[in-house]
Design a protein around this nucleic acid. Structure first.
Lengths: 140, 140
DNA sequence: AACAATATTGATAATCATTCGCAAATACAG
DNA sequence: CTGTATTTGCGAATGATTATCAATATTGTT
Protein backbone atom coordinates (compact mmCIF):
# COMPACT_ATOMS: atom_id res chain seq x y z
CA UNK A 1 0.00 0.00 0.00
CA UNK A 2 2.98 2.33 -0.57
CA UNK A 3 1.19 3.71 -3.58
CA UNK A 4 -2.06 4.40 -1.75
CA UNK A 5 -0.91 7.97 -1.11
CA UNK A 6 -0.53 8.60 -4.82
CA UNK A 7 -3.81 6.84 -5.54
CA UNK A 8 -5.60 9.21 -3.22
CA UNK A 9 -3.96 12.19 -4.90
CA UNK A 10 -5.15 10.95 -8.27
CA UNK A 11 -8.66 10.61 -6.95
CA UNK A 12 -8.63 14.10 -5.52
CA UNK A 13 -7.54 15.46 -8.86
CA UNK A 14 -10.20 13.47 -10.68
CA UNK A 15 -12.90 14.77 -8.37
CA UNK A 16 -11.80 18.38 -8.78
CA UNK A 17 -11.63 17.98 -12.52
CA UNK A 18 -15.24 16.89 -12.37
CA UNK A 19 -16.06 20.06 -10.45
CA UNK A 20 -16.52 18.18 -7.19
CA UNK A 21 -14.94 18.75 -3.81
CA UNK A 22 -12.58 16.07 -2.60
CA UNK A 23 -14.27 15.05 0.63
CA UNK A 24 -13.23 12.18 2.87
CA UNK A 25 -16.49 10.38 2.09
CA UNK A 26 -16.04 10.55 -1.66
CA UNK A 27 -12.46 9.39 -1.39
CA UNK A 28 -13.48 6.52 0.85
CA UNK A 29 -16.06 5.36 -1.68
CA UNK A 30 -13.72 5.74 -4.62
CA UNK A 31 -11.17 3.67 -2.77
CA UNK A 32 -13.71 0.99 -1.92
CA UNK A 33 -14.88 0.81 -5.49
CA UNK A 34 -11.36 0.80 -6.88
CA UNK A 35 -10.62 -2.29 -4.79
CA UNK A 36 -13.80 -4.10 -5.85
CA UNK A 37 -13.64 -7.09 -8.05
CA UNK A 38 -17.31 -7.79 -7.41
CA UNK A 39 -20.57 -5.86 -7.89
CA UNK A 40 -21.65 -4.62 -4.45
CA UNK A 41 -24.88 -2.80 -3.72
CA UNK A 42 -25.25 0.40 -1.74
CA UNK A 43 -25.61 -1.29 1.64
CA UNK A 44 -22.40 -3.21 1.07
CA UNK A 45 -20.54 -0.14 -0.19
CA UNK A 46 -21.60 1.61 2.99
CA UNK A 47 -20.27 -1.23 5.13
CA UNK A 48 -16.95 -1.20 3.30
CA UNK A 49 -16.63 2.57 3.30
CA UNK A 50 -17.26 2.65 7.05
CA UNK A 51 -13.98 0.78 7.53
CA UNK A 52 -12.20 3.79 6.03
CA UNK A 53 -14.45 6.60 7.27
CA UNK A 54 -16.52 5.28 10.19
CA UNK A 55 -18.88 8.23 10.27
CA UNK A 56 -20.08 8.04 6.66
CA UNK A 57 -23.87 7.89 6.43
CA UNK A 58 -26.00 5.78 4.14
CA UNK A 59 -27.57 8.95 2.67
CA UNK A 60 -24.12 10.12 1.66
CA UNK A 61 -23.39 6.79 0.03
CA UNK A 62 -26.55 7.11 -2.05
CA UNK A 63 -25.73 10.70 -2.96
CA UNK A 64 -22.10 10.02 -3.73
CA UNK A 65 -22.77 6.98 -5.80
CA UNK A 66 -25.14 8.99 -7.94
CA UNK A 67 -22.77 11.94 -8.19
CA UNK A 68 -19.89 9.68 -9.17
CA UNK A 69 -22.02 7.94 -11.73
CA UNK A 70 -23.09 11.24 -13.29
CA UNK A 71 -19.38 12.17 -13.42
CA UNK A 72 -18.64 8.93 -15.23
CA UNK A 73 -16.37 7.70 -12.44
CA UNK A 74 -18.31 4.55 -11.57
CA UNK A 75 -20.95 2.40 -13.21
CA UNK A 76 -24.38 1.43 -11.97
CA UNK A 77 -26.24 -1.74 -12.93
CA UNK A 78 -29.66 -2.78 -11.89
CA UNK A 79 -30.40 -6.40 -12.47
CA UNK A 80 -33.88 -7.87 -12.46
CA UNK A 81 -35.66 -7.65 -9.16
CA UNK A 82 -32.52 -6.59 -7.33
CA UNK A 83 -31.08 -3.41 -5.89
CA UNK A 84 -28.62 -1.35 -7.88
CA UNK A 85 -25.04 -2.59 -7.98
CA UNK A 86 -21.88 -0.65 -8.69
CA UNK A 87 -18.54 -1.33 -10.28
CA UNK A 88 -15.38 0.41 -11.44
CA UNK A 89 -15.43 2.05 -14.80
CA UNK A 90 -11.79 1.46 -15.68
CA UNK A 91 -12.18 -2.04 -17.01
CA UNK A 92 -12.93 -2.89 -20.61
CA UNK A 93 -16.57 -2.85 -21.57
CA UNK A 94 -18.52 -6.00 -20.78
CA UNK A 95 -22.01 -7.37 -20.20
CA UNK A 96 -23.22 -9.68 -17.47
CA UNK A 97 -24.37 -13.19 -16.80
CA UNK A 98 -26.52 -13.58 -13.71
CA UNK A 99 -26.49 -17.03 -12.12
CA UNK A 100 -30.13 -17.52 -11.20
CA UNK A 101 -29.29 -20.05 -8.50
CA UNK A 102 -26.50 -18.30 -6.63
CA UNK A 103 -27.06 -14.70 -7.67
CA UNK A 104 -23.42 -14.61 -8.71
CA UNK A 105 -22.53 -12.18 -11.48
CA UNK A 106 -20.06 -13.01 -14.23
CA UNK A 107 -18.78 -10.79 -17.00
CA UNK A 108 -18.41 -11.44 -20.70
CA UNK A 109 -17.62 -9.48 -23.79
CA UNK A 110 -18.61 -9.95 -27.42
CA UNK A 111 -17.60 -7.61 -30.21
CA UNK A 112 -19.83 -9.55 -32.57
CA UNK A 113 -22.89 -8.76 -30.47
CA UNK A 114 -21.94 -5.09 -30.10
CA UNK A 115 -21.46 -4.92 -33.83
CA UNK A 116 -24.86 -6.45 -34.53
CA UNK A 117 -26.51 -4.10 -32.08
CA UNK A 118 -25.34 -0.97 -33.86
CA UNK A 119 -26.21 -2.43 -37.24
CA UNK A 120 -29.75 -3.12 -36.11
CA UNK A 121 -30.18 0.27 -34.49
CA UNK A 122 -28.72 1.93 -37.53
CA UNK A 123 -31.18 0.20 -39.83
CA UNK A 124 -33.98 1.60 -37.69
CA UNK A 125 -32.57 5.11 -37.85
CA UNK A 126 -30.92 5.15 -34.44
CA UNK A 127 -27.53 5.44 -32.78
CA UNK A 128 -26.94 3.28 -29.71
CA UNK A 129 -26.01 5.53 -26.79
CA UNK A 130 -25.74 2.68 -24.36
CA UNK A 131 -27.20 -0.75 -23.92
CA UNK A 132 -28.05 -3.33 -21.35
CA UNK A 133 -27.47 -7.00 -22.02
CA UNK A 134 -27.94 -9.53 -19.27
CA UNK A 135 -28.12 -13.30 -19.55
CA UNK A 136 -30.06 -14.93 -16.74
CA UNK A 137 -28.60 -18.40 -16.61
CA UNK A 138 -28.51 -21.73 -14.88
CA UNK A 139 -25.41 -23.92 -14.62
CA UNK A 140 -25.34 -26.58 -17.32
CA UNK B 1 -66.45 -7.72 -31.87
CA UNK B 2 -68.50 -10.79 -32.86
CA UNK B 3 -65.66 -12.99 -31.72
CA UNK B 4 -65.18 -11.24 -28.37
CA UNK B 5 -67.47 -13.83 -26.75
CA UNK B 6 -65.24 -16.65 -27.91
CA UNK B 7 -62.15 -14.67 -26.94
CA UNK B 8 -63.46 -14.41 -23.43
CA UNK B 9 -64.19 -18.13 -23.32
CA UNK B 10 -60.64 -18.85 -24.41
CA UNK B 11 -59.30 -16.62 -21.67
CA UNK B 12 -61.45 -18.30 -19.05
CA UNK B 13 -60.13 -21.67 -20.13
CA UNK B 14 -56.57 -20.43 -20.10
CA UNK B 15 -56.96 -19.07 -16.58
CA UNK B 16 -58.48 -22.30 -15.29
CA UNK B 17 -55.76 -24.32 -16.94
CA UNK B 18 -53.29 -22.24 -14.99
CA UNK B 19 -55.18 -23.10 -11.80
CA UNK B 20 -56.66 -19.63 -11.52
CA UNK B 21 -60.26 -18.52 -11.15
CA UNK B 22 -61.76 -16.65 -14.05
CA UNK B 23 -62.72 -13.40 -12.39
CA UNK B 24 -64.10 -10.30 -14.10
CA UNK B 25 -60.96 -8.37 -13.15
CA UNK B 26 -58.58 -10.89 -14.64
CA UNK B 27 -60.62 -11.10 -17.81
CA UNK B 28 -60.71 -7.32 -18.07
CA UNK B 29 -56.94 -7.14 -17.81
CA UNK B 30 -56.36 -9.97 -20.23
CA UNK B 31 -58.63 -8.21 -22.70
CA UNK B 32 -56.84 -4.90 -22.26
CA UNK B 33 -53.46 -6.53 -22.74
CA UNK B 34 -54.64 -8.55 -25.73
CA UNK B 35 -55.64 -5.32 -27.45
CA UNK B 36 -52.36 -3.56 -26.66
CA UNK B 37 -49.91 -2.74 -29.36
CA UNK B 38 -47.88 -0.64 -26.95
CA UNK B 39 -46.13 -1.24 -23.60
CA UNK B 40 -48.33 0.30 -20.91
CA UNK B 41 -47.43 0.51 -17.25
CA UNK B 42 -49.64 -0.49 -14.34
CA UNK B 43 -51.34 2.90 -13.97
CA UNK B 44 -52.31 2.87 -17.61
CA UNK B 45 -53.51 -0.74 -17.49
CA UNK B 46 -55.70 0.25 -14.58
CA UNK B 47 -57.19 3.13 -16.53
CA UNK B 48 -57.93 0.91 -19.51
CA UNK B 49 -59.31 -1.95 -17.41
CA UNK B 50 -61.66 0.47 -15.64
CA UNK B 51 -63.44 0.99 -18.94
CA UNK B 52 -64.39 -2.69 -18.89
CA UNK B 53 -64.79 -3.23 -15.15
CA UNK B 54 -65.23 0.18 -13.48
CA UNK B 55 -64.74 -1.13 -9.94
CA UNK B 56 -61.32 -2.72 -10.45
CA UNK B 57 -58.77 -1.46 -7.93
CA UNK B 58 -55.14 -0.61 -8.46
CA UNK B 59 -54.14 -3.25 -5.91
CA UNK B 60 -55.86 -5.88 -8.02
CA UNK B 61 -54.09 -4.67 -11.12
CA UNK B 62 -50.74 -5.10 -9.41
CA UNK B 63 -51.70 -8.52 -8.10
CA UNK B 64 -53.19 -9.70 -11.36
CA UNK B 65 -50.34 -8.53 -13.46
CA UNK B 66 -47.94 -10.46 -11.26
CA UNK B 67 -50.15 -13.55 -11.22
CA UNK B 68 -50.52 -13.47 -14.99
CA UNK B 69 -46.80 -13.07 -15.41
CA UNK B 70 -46.07 -16.01 -13.15
CA UNK B 71 -48.55 -18.01 -15.25
CA UNK B 72 -46.68 -17.01 -18.39
CA UNK B 73 -49.71 -15.22 -19.82
CA UNK B 74 -48.17 -11.75 -20.08
CA UNK B 75 -44.68 -10.30 -20.09
CA UNK B 76 -43.14 -7.71 -17.81
CA UNK B 77 -40.29 -5.39 -18.76
CA UNK B 78 -38.61 -2.86 -16.60
CA UNK B 79 -36.57 -0.37 -18.50
CA UNK B 80 -33.95 1.85 -16.90
CA UNK B 81 -35.31 4.29 -14.37
CA UNK B 82 -38.90 3.59 -15.37
CA UNK B 83 -41.84 1.70 -13.95
CA UNK B 84 -42.58 -1.83 -15.10
CA UNK B 85 -44.33 -2.18 -18.45
CA UNK B 86 -46.38 -5.06 -19.75
CA UNK B 87 -47.09 -6.65 -23.08
CA UNK B 88 -48.76 -9.66 -24.67
CA UNK B 89 -46.85 -12.87 -24.77
CA UNK B 90 -48.29 -14.20 -28.00
CA UNK B 91 -45.99 -12.35 -30.34
CA UNK B 92 -42.68 -13.68 -31.57
CA UNK B 93 -39.76 -13.08 -29.27
CA UNK B 94 -38.10 -9.70 -29.53
CA UNK B 95 -35.91 -7.21 -27.70
CA UNK B 96 -36.36 -3.46 -27.31
CA UNK B 97 -34.98 -0.16 -28.43
CA UNK B 98 -35.75 2.73 -26.10
CA UNK B 99 -35.78 6.17 -27.71
CA UNK B 100 -34.03 8.28 -25.10
CA UNK B 101 -35.64 11.47 -26.33
CA UNK B 102 -39.28 10.44 -26.60
CA UNK B 103 -39.36 7.39 -24.34
CA UNK B 104 -40.91 5.50 -27.23
CA UNK B 105 -40.27 1.76 -27.31
CA UNK B 106 -39.56 -0.13 -30.52
CA UNK B 107 -39.10 -3.84 -31.01
CA UNK B 108 -36.47 -5.76 -32.91
CA UNK B 109 -35.39 -9.32 -33.33
CA UNK B 110 -32.02 -10.88 -34.13
CA UNK B 111 -31.40 -14.60 -34.37
CA UNK B 112 -27.72 -13.93 -34.77
CA UNK B 113 -27.57 -12.21 -31.39
CA UNK B 114 -29.63 -14.91 -29.68
CA UNK B 115 -27.31 -17.48 -31.19
CA UNK B 116 -24.21 -15.71 -29.94
CA UNK B 117 -25.71 -15.34 -26.50
CA UNK B 118 -26.20 -19.08 -26.03
CA UNK B 119 -22.78 -19.81 -27.44
CA UNK B 120 -21.16 -17.47 -24.95
CA UNK B 121 -23.16 -18.77 -22.02
CA UNK B 122 -22.45 -22.32 -23.08
CA UNK B 123 -18.70 -21.69 -23.18
CA UNK B 124 -18.96 -20.47 -19.58
CA UNK B 125 -20.89 -23.53 -18.51
CA UNK B 126 -24.34 -22.02 -18.49
CA UNK B 127 -27.72 -22.32 -20.19
CA UNK B 128 -29.56 -19.07 -20.88
CA UNK B 129 -32.95 -19.20 -19.18
CA UNK B 130 -33.93 -15.73 -20.29
CA UNK B 131 -32.19 -12.54 -21.18
CA UNK B 132 -32.65 -8.82 -21.30
CA UNK B 133 -31.33 -6.78 -24.17
CA UNK B 134 -32.19 -3.12 -24.45
CA UNK B 135 -30.66 -0.53 -26.74
CA UNK B 136 -30.95 2.99 -25.42
CA UNK B 137 -30.81 5.09 -28.55
CA UNK B 138 -31.01 8.52 -30.07
CA UNK B 139 -32.41 9.22 -33.54
CA UNK B 140 -29.68 9.48 -36.16
C1' DA C 1 -80.53 -23.46 -8.20
C1' DA C 2 -78.47 -23.32 -3.53
C1' DC C 3 -74.18 -24.49 -0.46
C1' DA C 4 -70.10 -24.79 1.41
C1' DA C 5 -65.12 -24.43 0.69
C1' DT C 6 -61.72 -21.69 -1.06
C1' DA C 7 -59.76 -18.03 -3.86
C1' DT C 8 -59.92 -13.27 -4.91
C1' DT C 9 -60.94 -8.50 -4.24
C1' DG C 10 -60.91 -3.59 -2.42
C1' DA C 11 -59.28 -0.50 0.79
C1' DT C 12 -55.69 0.69 3.30
C1' DA C 13 -51.50 0.07 5.90
C1' DA C 14 -46.83 -1.44 5.44
C1' DT C 15 -42.47 -2.04 3.12
C1' DC C 16 -38.45 -1.13 0.46
C1' DA C 17 -35.19 1.41 -1.90
C1' DT C 18 -34.12 5.81 -2.69
C1' DT C 19 -34.45 10.99 -2.39
C1' DC C 20 -35.23 15.34 0.01
C1' DG C 21 -34.88 19.26 3.47
C1' DC C 22 -32.29 21.59 6.40
C1' DA C 23 -29.07 22.89 10.03
C1' DA C 24 -24.33 21.90 11.08
C1' DA C 25 -19.81 20.77 9.33
C1' DT C 26 -16.28 21.07 5.76
C1' DA C 27 -13.53 22.31 1.59
C1' DC C 28 -11.14 25.57 -0.71
C1' DA C 29 -10.19 30.23 -3.06
C1' DG C 30 -8.28 34.29 -1.65
C1' DC D 1 -7.00 32.28 8.61
C1' DT D 2 -11.69 33.64 6.88
C1' DG D 3 -15.90 33.81 4.20
C1' DT D 4 -18.70 31.44 1.16
C1' DA D 5 -20.49 27.80 -1.39
C1' DT D 6 -20.67 22.64 -0.97
C1' DT D 7 -21.40 18.68 1.28
C1' DT D 8 -22.83 15.92 5.12
C1' DG D 9 -25.84 13.51 8.61
C1' DC D 10 -30.00 12.91 10.31
C1' DG D 11 -34.59 12.02 9.86
C1' DA D 12 -38.70 12.73 7.28
C1' DA D 13 -40.77 12.13 2.68
C1' DT D 14 -41.52 9.78 -1.58
C1' DG D 15 -42.97 6.48 -5.11
C1' DA D 16 -43.65 2.03 -6.53
C1' DT D 17 -45.00 -2.18 -5.06
C1' DT D 18 -46.63 -5.77 -1.55
C1' DA D 19 -49.11 -7.36 2.48
C1' DT D 20 -53.25 -7.59 5.60
C1' DC D 21 -57.77 -8.77 6.26
C1' DA D 22 -62.69 -8.59 6.23
C1' DA D 23 -66.07 -8.81 2.56
C1' DT D 24 -67.27 -10.85 -1.81
C1' DA D 25 -67.18 -13.91 -5.76
C1' DT D 26 -66.08 -18.38 -8.02
C1' DT D 27 -66.24 -23.19 -8.44
C1' DG D 28 -67.23 -28.02 -7.52
C1' DT D 29 -70.80 -30.51 -5.37
C1' DT D 30 -75.51 -31.55 -4.12
Amino acid sequence: MTESRQQVEKMKTALRQAGLRATAQRLALLQVIAENEDHPEVEELHRRAERIDPKISIATVYRTVSVLERAGMIQRHSFEGARARYERVDKRHHDHIVDLESGEILEFQSNRIEQLQSEIASQMGYDVIHHRLELYCRKR
